[in-house]
Design a protein around this nucleic acid. Structure first.
Length: 890
DNA sequence: CTTGGCCAGGTAT
DNA sequence: TATACCTGG
């Protein structure tokens, strides 16, 4: 099946968060892990080759520092760096055997796979992860205060276009204070329809970076390998970003910074343009940098290249890449080959048979292993060879179907194919000499099919698991969700099935000694051990434990680790933005952040050196190992289909979004207006877009899309605000809070100077019996319940003091407040003080504020009390939030 | 011998 | 579908 690559729709070009994980000098790391005595020494991996010390295929960073590079011979490396360790890749059957690295790569991929099902292994040491779902989920969690970014996760993180990550964070926090901060610039550079996604781009990439930090920490912890990562909205940019800071670092490529980066980025740096095509592009257009491509229209580019490439270039030059992360864990083919240069040309039949035997032997071994792991059999084999025909090198490849096979039949097939496709196979008059010397031989097998019976059993098993899970959790099936997912290509289904099964088996192999006894599974083929894989669900649940519903449904799983609410500056800000208060003046002071990060990083590295056991502490992450024992129910969750066979809820959300997004026809983009000359492009979007989007139901988070509404201008700041009552109120609150914040601060400054010698002011006694009156009366008068204005009297005047017995002056801000609202008002100050403290408005007030808080007589209502508690605990507990990180000197 | 060797994926035809 | 070629790690 020639599975054409699928693409996302143009509309969702900024909606994804894509991660590229790239292992640092992977082969070297594998060797270093295997031989710990080599650690911290310059090291390179060479393919055995008697000539000049062998060819270097990987160089670690200590050796790179000495100038050793790939494409060098081992001897040259020795010249540059006499103390270098040269590891030879093992030689089996007179050939380089890279299975060690393949296995190591799979070990890593097994870790990666837990973070998303949308994992695409791009090579033995690289993988793309589409983490959109997780990011969107965390975004929501942040808004309800259930998730907070941890600064530890941003250690070793860079953002293109910013001197350090702190500046990037600062920009984001400023935008929280003023959500429409960059809108003017945005409107110039982006399509109107894209503004919502553009506004959220930075925060979503930052959250993506925190995910990346966790991914990399998990890889390090569980495999010992270090990697770099790129975080961006698509694969091309993620790949580009990953290469910008190495090793053991991760790089965000912010949407708004791609253009300036591209202005000086050589065309060849873009994946796909590093070869001949890139050169042709440069020559044809007379350019050097990818950013220069934007000067050409799409039609021009299509004329100069072809339709497909033209459109691709047009988009890429704007940082747009719609290619989907195509889930693929296992390779589609298995092959091996060998060159026989010069004197090593194969000239005799015996020799040919020998080498075909060697190659097929390797193929056979790998096929056997693959069958055990992946439950599949190859259905096709291809033999490739280069012959010397009249001094010319002629390459050919021939294929044949494969039913049953073993090593000998593979040899026979290969030989037959070559013979049948060579005009004169044997030299005339000879039974042993080839007419055409062979300079290259390759055998590869592919077109895998799972063994059908096993597949059926698996499907049965999943169905059983699903049913059982429903029974246990009490959820009745209701009706199966009406996700009319296009019937997926069969191979995709098979493939996913396979990867699941493989992990299943692998988990069993690794832990076969485990006396688990949980084998409720009727299948003989199913191991008694719960697959390792299934703790991805747990992982997610733990991450989002605070969300409640999911976690509660599987409470038994989580009892050992009670959900812990974390609040941070970010969540506060988000919440305030969403709900009521936004203080524009409380922007962060992030000076020194870079140094802080460096300090942490230094600690980090030190710990790695001294004690590898310690290093995971730094991630602030969950401990996966605890999750290994869990009920088998979660297995069902892991089935690839769950992504699409999701709950009806998600479907509704999705359709909801489709609705709001298309309620009124928005102006078409230039692309869309064009007559559909580029049929292929639209076909692709049409055919694959829907399928693909099914897996992105969480794009449709309705409250993130409120900006799709028409906007009106704020008469105070001129910002565009969604023309909708809640947003208007929120925005007005924002100004109100800004104003208030200013007053508060000057008041406090005054107070501080006065109270140098004084005792802290006595709190005003409160009137009791607030609850009954408050909720009822207020809700009638103030339309949106989340407005903060209810905390304050409309116009605090002197007259009111004596005249109105229901009013009371706040000792903090001197404002006159309705007595019933005083508790909440004081809560507000507590929160406000804390926040200010976090923002390092004044370091010295910090302890004072905290102690004041403790002695505060205000007895907040239950709900508010809870909020405050979590705020306080966030500021005083051991785990550092970003805000604290900013506010503390160490 | 050799301007690296081997492997894998994608696209055009 | 089969083959040849390109790209990239």
């Amino acid at each position: 099946m020639t599975t054409a690559r699928s693409h996302v729709s143009m509309q969702s070009k900024y909606d994804r968060v894509v991660l590229l994980v790239d292992m640092d000098c992977f082969f070297c790391q594998v060797e270093e892990k295997q031989r710990p005595e080599y650690r911290n020494r310059p090291l390179a991996v060479v393919q055995y080759n008697p000539w000049r010390g062998g060819g270097i295929i990987a160089v670690n960073y200590a050796a790179r520092a000495k100038g050793v590079t790939r494409h060098m011979r081992g001897d040259e490396a020795k010249d540059l760096c006499p103390e270098i360790v040269l590891c030879q890749v093992p030689n089996i059957r007179e050939k380089a055997d890279t299975s060690k690295y393949r296995d190591a790569g799979k070990e890593v991929a097994n870790v990666l796979q837990r973070f998303t099902q949308l994992l695409e292994r791009a090579s033995v040491d690289e993988a793309y992860l589409d983490i959109t779902e997780t990011v969107n989920h965390r975004m929501q969690q942040m808004q309800i205060g259930a998730f907070a970014l941890q600064p530890q996760e941003l250690v070793n993180t860079f953002a293109v276009g910013y001197p350090n990550i702190g500046d990037y964070v600062n920009k984001i926090t400023n935008r929280f204070a003023n959500p429409y901060m960059d809108d003017e610039r945005f409107q110039m550079s982006y399509d109107q329809n894209d503004l919502p996604a553009v506004r959220q781009s930075d925060i979503r990439l930052l959250i993506g970076a925190s995910v990346a930090g966790e991914v990399r920490a998990a890889v390090k912890k569980e495999t010992g390998y270090e990697c770099s990562a790129g975080i961006a909205h698509n694969k091309i940019l993620a790949k580009l970003a990953a290469g910008m800071n190495k090793p053991n670092k991760q790089t965000i490529l912010p949407l708004a910074d791609t253009a300036s980066l591209f202005d000086s980025l050589p065309v060849g740096k873009i994946k796909g343009l590093g070869g001949k095509f890139g050169e042709v592009v440069c020559e044809t257009l007379g350019i050097k940098y990818i950013g220069q491509v934007v000067k050409f229209t799409e039609v021009e580019l299509q004329r100069k290249f072809d339709e497909k490439n033209g459109t691709w270039l047009f988009n890429i030059s704007r940082g747009i890449d719609l290619e989907a992360v195509t889930p693929r864990f296992y390779s589609k083919s298995i092959g091996c080959c060998k060159k026989f240069p010069g004197r090593n040309n194969i000239t005799g039949l015996k020799t040919l048979q020998h080498w075909l035997g060697e190659l097929s032997s390797e193929i056979n071994d790998r096929l056997e292993k693959d069958f055990i792991e992946n439950n599949r059999r190859a259905k096709q084999m291809v033999v490739q060879y280069v012959q010397d025909i009249d001094g010319e090198e002629v390459a050919s490849s021939r294929s044949t179907a494969l039913k049953d096979y073993d090593q000998e039949s593979i040899v026979r097939f290969a030989l037959d194919l070559i013979r049948a496709n060579t005009k004169t196979f044997l030299r005339p008059g000879s039974e042993a000499a080839l007419n055409n010397a062979i300079k290259f031989l390759g055998i590869s097998v592919g077109k895998f099919e799972t063994v059908s019976s096993a597949q059926n059993k698996l499907q049965e098993m999943f169905a059983n698991q699903a049913a059982k899970k429903r029974r246990i959790s009490g959820e009745e099936p209701a009706q199966p969700p009406k996700v009319h997912v296009e019937k997926k290509p069969k191979q995709t289904e098979e493939f996913k099935m396979k990867s699941f099964f493989a992990n299943y088996l692998q988990g069993a192999k690794k832990e076969d000694a485990k006396p688990d006894g949980t084998s409720v599974d009727p299948l003989a083929a199913a191991p008694a051990v719960v697959p390792k894989k299934s703790f991805e669900e747990e992982y997610k649940e733990k991450l989002h434990a605070a969300s409640g519903t999911e976690a509660a449904a599987k409470g038994t799983v989580l009892t050992s680790t009670p959900p812990e609410l974390k609040k941070s500056f970010f969540s506060q800000y988000l919440k305030q933005h969403q709900g009521s208060v936004t203080s524009g003046e409380d922007s962060l002071d992030v000076q020194g952040l870079a140094e802080e990060l460096d300090a942490i990083e230094a600690d980090n590295l030190k710990d790695f050196d001294e004690d590898t056991e310690e290093e995971t502490e730094l991630t602030g992450n969950i401990h996966m190992s605890k999750l290994e024992t869990q009920p088998p129910d979660a297995v069902q969750e892991k089935h690839p289909n769950t992504l699409n066979d999701s709950t009806g809820n998600e479907v509704n959300i999705k359709t909801g979004m489709e609705h709001s997004a298309r309620l009124e026809p928005l102006p078409l983009t230039e692309d869309e207006l064009k007559p559909s000359t580029s049929k292929r492009k639209f076909d692709e979007i049409e055919s694959s877009g829907n399928d693909y989007k099914e897996s992105y139901v969480e794009f449709a988070v309705p409250d993130l899309r409120i900006e799709l509404l028409p906007t009106i201008k704020c008469d105070q700041c001129g910002a565009n605000i969604p023309d909708e009552v809640k947003s208007l109120q929120t925005h007005r609150d924002h100004h109100f809070a800004q104003e208030l914040s200013r007053t508060l601060r000057s008041n406090e400054r005054e107070e501080r100077t006065q109270s140098r010698q004084k005792v802290s002011p006595k709190p005003t006694p409160l009137k009791k019996n607030k609850k009954t009156a408050s909720s009822g009366s207020i809700s009638n008068t103030a339309p949106p319940t989340n407005s903060i204005t209810k905390f304050f009297s409309a116009k605090p005047t002197q007259e009111q003091e004596s005249s109105d017995p229901h009013m009371q002056q706040c000792t903090e801000c001197k404002a006159f407040i309705k007595c019933v609202d005083m508790p909440e008002h004081l809560d507000y100050h507590v929160a406000k003080n804390l926040q200010r403290e976090l923002n390092q408005q004044d370091l010295r007030t910090r302890t004072a504020a905290l102690s004041k808080q403790k002695t505060s007589p205000a007895q907040p209502k239950k709900q508010t009390q809870k909020k405050l508690n979590s705020t306080i605990s966030a500021s005083s507990s051991g785990s550092k939030t970003i805000a604290q990180f900013f506010s503390q000197s160490n």
